[in-house]
Amino acid sequence: MMETDIRELEKVQNAVLKAKNIVKRFGHVQALGGVDFELKRGEVVALVGDNGAGKSTLIKCFSGVYQADEGEIEIDGVPVKINSPMESRYYGVETVFQDLSLAPDVSVAANVFLGREIERHGILGKIGFLDYPEMQKRADKFIREVGVNLPSVEIPAESLSGGQRQAVAIARARAWASKVLLLDEPTASLGVRQTEIVLDIIKASKDRGMGIVVISHDLPSVLKIADRVVVLRLGKVAGNFQAESVTYADVVSAMLGKEFKA
């Protein structure tokens, strides 16, 4: 009994991202109706639910794109207000948005460093000159680290294939995230082998102690790597399962709103 208590305590202490009673309204529509959410270090949580269940809205509340109307968010046990994407990144939270959030005309390297460019040394750097060779070198390394080879990081993002763009967006988030990685449909529009690469990236990041939230419609793939499955339905948590013991039927019935009984 004592042992379980300590283990419970440890788990709470290890929560890298914790949200209580998150409410988000758009006019009269309530997108999130009081969501509690917890993510531990080195844990992969699959966030699933039907269209409009509030998955992307919840993630956007964590990444600062939206601000929750009610509720509290803690990162590493510290209560925070996340008012902008800048602030979430400051707390070590990185997001791969569903639209990938790349500037198509900008080079891959500049996309990876957009908003946190490396300046040149000396006086030129002070007046805003950027160290493109250094950014290219590091961007190339970031992208290689996720197991992808691009012909060049100097080409504009729009000349990449869909899978390559996804890889760039994920490599960028992974490189900058220190605590939490939020992935909104990272395997959408990817082939089987490309999906495998993305799942490997998630596993590797988990092993580095990152807390990871994955939104995905691809239940079979996501169950391979998830520790826990959280089901949202109509803006509320409709199920919270350990991945090892859950079945598709459990998840689907929670998504559809049938009462789940263990």
């Binding site: 794109v65 902008s84 994407p85 959030s101 790349l102 957009l114 908003g115 946190r116």
Partner: peptide, 13 residues
């Protein structure tokens, strides 16, 4: 970047 994709630019800070 702003001209290429304003929303991405905003999210990039």
């Amino acid at each position: 970047a702003v001209g290429s994709n304003m929303e991405s630019a905003r999210r990039a800070g």
